[in-house]
């Protein structure tokens, strides 16, 4: 009887610990969100979206940084996602079990977890050094490289979910694989692939480290892709570590904007995926 009690106590203790661990994790998320909202909301104002980043001590907004982040993220996705989708198509359709596919799959998973700062150094070496200066193009290329693994992985997974019968039907009608892929597989896997794009945007729009030495920063309004460009993450980094109260407030406001954007993207990606699964299930 005593031994049974001991086992029960041990069971209870470990299960309680696992509950505590879960609550700790949730508390961290709550604490971060709460800090962002409480600090960020006070910095929210119309100025944020209409004025440029101010000089030290001055007042201003984040317009140039928001624009720069938008442009570089968009360019990054436009360059990176087609490569990711095509490569994913190769892995899922053409070279499913080939040696090359195994290697690409493995390397892609490594790239998926590789430190982004390394990718930044890579682009610095091959773009910034060659061009002789920092530029928005270099920043966009960095983000593109970071977007490829995410889109590749989701595209392959989603294409693999398409029922084989659909592919066979298309082939039976005499369609070549390219026609089947474009007209049957992509439409069937559309919401899955869009999910991958959303996740990739979420992943790259908060990247900071690799932009430090590719796009750098720009205090002024600039639409020149061949020149340094302001972007939210680097502005947050610079302003948060400054001693000026106005800059710090802007950093918090920027942090709130970026986090809300990314969380919304992640949530929509998940909702899309859930809808997709519900559709499959019915």
């Amino acid at each position: 009887m005593n031994r049974r009690m001991l086992r029960k106590i041990k069971n209870g203790a470990f299960l309680s610990l696992s509950l505590v661990a879960t609550l700790t994790g949730l508390a961290c998320l709550a604490a971060i969100l709460w800090t962002l909202i409480s600090h960020g909301v006070s910095g929210m104002s119309g100025r944020l979206f209409t004025q440029m980043t101010p000089p030290p001590g001055g007042q201003g907004g984040l317009l140039n940084a928001i624009y720069g982040s938008g442009v570089m993220t968009l360019l990054g996705i436009l360059i990176g996602s087609p490569i990711g989708v095509l490569a994913g198509t190769y892995l899922a359709e053409y070279g499913r079990n080939s040696r090359l596919s195994m290697l690409v799959r493995f390397i892609n998973d490594v790239l998926l977890s590789a430190p982004s700062i390394i990718i930044g150094l890579f682009i610095y070496e091959i773009v910034v050094v060659k061009m002789g200066h920092f530029s928005a193009i270099a920043g966009a290329l960095t983000l593109a490289v970071l977007a490829i693994p995410v889109t590749l992985r989701t595209t392959e997974d989603m294409l693999n979910l398409v029922p084989i019968g659909m592919k066979d039907s298309s082939a039976a009608l005499g369609a070549y694989p390219w026609r089947t892929t474009l007209s049957v597989l992509y439409p069937a896997a559309r919401s899955g692939i869009v999910t991958g794009l959303l996740l990739a945007i979420a992943r790259i729009s908060g990247e900071t480290a690799p932009l430090l030495f590719t796009a750098l920063n720009n205090q002024f309004w600039s639409t020149n892709l061949n020149a340094p460009m302001a972007n939210l993450p680097v502005v947050i980094f610079q302003f948060a570590l400054s001693p000026y109260k106005d800059w710090q407030d802007l950093a918090w406001a920027g942090a709130l904007i970026i986090t809300v954007t990314i969380l919304l993207l992640s949530i929509s990606a998940r909702v899309l995926l859930a809808l997709l699964q519900a559709e499959r299930g019915s």
Partner: peptide, 19 residues
């Protein structure tokens, strides 16, 4: 919720960690 914690960009963890 746990997965959303993974989506929060690292700079946010930095600024939260510091302040």
């Amino acid at each position: 919720a746990v997965e959303l914690l993974a989506a929060v960009p690292s700079i946010i963890f930095g600024i939260w960690g510091l302040f």
